[in-house]
Design a protein around this nucleic acid. Structure first.
Lengths: 106, 106
DNA sequence: ATGAGTAATCAACATCCGTTGATCCGTAGA
DNA sequence: TCTACGGATCAACGGATGTTGATTACTCAT
């Protein structure tokens, strides 16, 4: 089914985007609102190039948004992405209330 | 804070475990209950070695459990791991209701 | 005890990912 | 227009990750 495949792929990219310490730290920082790159660079004590790389991964996954303004770019959490994440996680929950083992081998 | 660091690390390993198509497919299969490896090998049409590798990743992350029985090993979803995942995902939600931008650069 | 079947582990290889430093692009101020 | 600055992008490198085939360990049946 195509929608299932699509769901799996977005799942993979969402989970991959979050499978890195620095990226989780970025998400953490953005929880209280928008931040510009220079702000994050200082807060996370890292190089500009590295930060830019991770921001791109998060943005491509749809978890954050960027808002260029003049010389600066502000990043913020993306509600839609987080909702999608929630939904994918929900879909991992057990569907049948594990009524004993459902496959017998011998 | 130590607990925050620990939370980040478990987050990373949970997300990493789920950032792979085959591993998501395994989770999908286990939603309806226990399955033995031979069962999954056939369902996912893959080699035994490959499957075993991915099962180990999921198990190490605490997302599934194994139950050896005789010649076979049965795998199942691990509720605790899924709850931990939920909790980590919850912790990514915006904390303050984004009252405008919280950092100004110039 | 031997042989067959299940599954974990290993070594080797290929690929992907993250880091770093350099470069490029766009904007703001002189 | 020239310069300085913020930030994206690129190439190159090194380390991690996934794949494959072979080996090993264990269990069951004969």
């Amino acid at each position: 089914m195509t929608t299932t495949i699509k769901r799996r792929d977005t799942g993979v990219s969402l989970f991959h985007a979050l499978s890195d310490v620095m990226r989780l730290e970025i998400m953490e920082r953005l929880k209280d609102g928008e931040h510009c790159v220079c702000d994050l660079t200082e807060a996370l004590k890292t190089g500009q190039s590295r930060l830019s790389f991770h921001l791109k991964v998060l943005k491509d996954a749809g978890l954050i948004t960027d808002r260029p303004e003049g010389r600066w770019t502000y990043y913020a959490l993306n509600r839609e992405g987080l909702e999608e994440l929630e939904s994918v996680v929900q879909s991992l929950q057990v569907s049948r209330p594990r009524a004993g083992s459902s496959s017998r081998c011998p």
